[in-house]
């Protein structure tokens, strides 16, 4: 007795499964962004730049860890390390922010996103979170390696490890600050153009142009001016906040009593960039 023959119905099926809410959609967008930042899910070419930068930063961290392990010298502490890597962070942001944001603009994909249950604000938050995470990983993982190097070679046992943890955690927070400030600025600039090269150039230019201003201000005769000079550039701004909040880090900036000003400006800068980003995408979504 043979089985009856049948033609299976592979026509269009309706979907009756669950539909997830805004949070999951935002998370999906975030994960997508984070993967795109490091070139996953795309061609090999897309992986070169971010991993090259990450590689250099890691290498420096490894060398520092090795030096500390061998010779006991702390060439750079965790916080100073982050500062030292500032230009690499800028390079990373200059490459990744356009990948996250300019690419979508250029390919015209935004209408496909905004015709879905994804608000303009959700889009911005997801991309921002992805870039912040990316930059934080860029700094935080090497810092972790430095920590591990120190922890495994410490001569003072658990107390030594605990000390290191006490140094690492604020440094991680410092890395988060770097990430947030630079991601905000980088995304804002990148969102202004669909051409990745222009965006990258624009980001680097902003940082390049503000640095000399700091230099000029810092040689003015007034001590106030000198102490406030760091406000003019994002890098020194972040360093200033770090100096004020983590005095043990010895970044080497003299802020006088203006530490709190640095913090306020940093927060204002982040808020402004984000608000502008949100406004921009709300406009773009209705275009």
């Amino acid at each position: 007795m043979s089985e009856a023959s049948v033609i299976h119905d592979i026509g269009y099926q309706r979907y009756t499964g669950p539909r997830l809410g805004r949070l999951q959609v935002l998370t999906a967008m975030y994960v997508h962004g984070l993967r795109a930042a490091f070139g996953f899910g795309r061609s090999a070419k897309a992986k070169i730049f971010p991993w090259m930068v990450a590689g250099i930063v890691l290498l420096v961290a490894v060398i520092l860890a090795a030096v500390r392990a061998q010779a006991g010298i702390v060439a750079l502490n965790y916080v100073q390390f982050a500062d030292a890597m500032s230009w690499l962070v800028i390079l990373f942001v200059a490459i990744v922010a356009p990948e996250l944001v300019s690419r979508d603009m250029r390919s015209g994909v935004l209408p496909l996103y905004f015709s879905r249950p994804l608000r303009a604000a959700d889009y911005v938050w997801a991309k921002f979170a992805a870039l912040v995470t990316g930059v934080w990983l860029l700094l935080g993982v090497p810092q972790l390696i430095m920590f591990l190097g120190a922890a495994f070679t410490t001569k003072t046992g658990m107390r030594g490890v605990w000390n290191e943890v006490g140094d690492l955690l604020p440094a991680w927070a410092y890395s988060v600050l770097w990430a947030v400030v630079f991601a905000a600025i980088g995304l804002l600039i990148a969102s202004l153009t669909g051409k990745r090269a222009f965006a990258a150039g624009g980001i680097v230019a902003v940082f390049l142009m503000t640095t000399p201003v700091v230099g000029v201000l810092s040689i003015l005769p007034s001590t106030d001016a000198q102490q406030l000079s760091g406000l003019a550039s994002p890098m020194t701004l972040v360093a200033g906040v770090g100096t004020w909040l983590i005095p043990a880090s010895n970044i080497g900036l003299d802020l006088g009593r203006f530490g709190v000003v640095y913090l306020i400006e940093a927060l204002a800068l982040i808020a402004t960039c984000l608000l502008l980003l949100l406004a921009r995408y709300r406009k773009v979504a209705s275009l």
Partner: peptide
């Protein structure tokens, strides 16, 4: 976008639709 495959792109957009 030119540098992803159709399968990946449509899957991604499916997730953005809440699937």
């Amino acid at each position: 976008p030119p540098d992803v495959s159709a399968a990946e792109f449509v899957t991604h957009l499916g997730r953005i639709s809440g699937l």
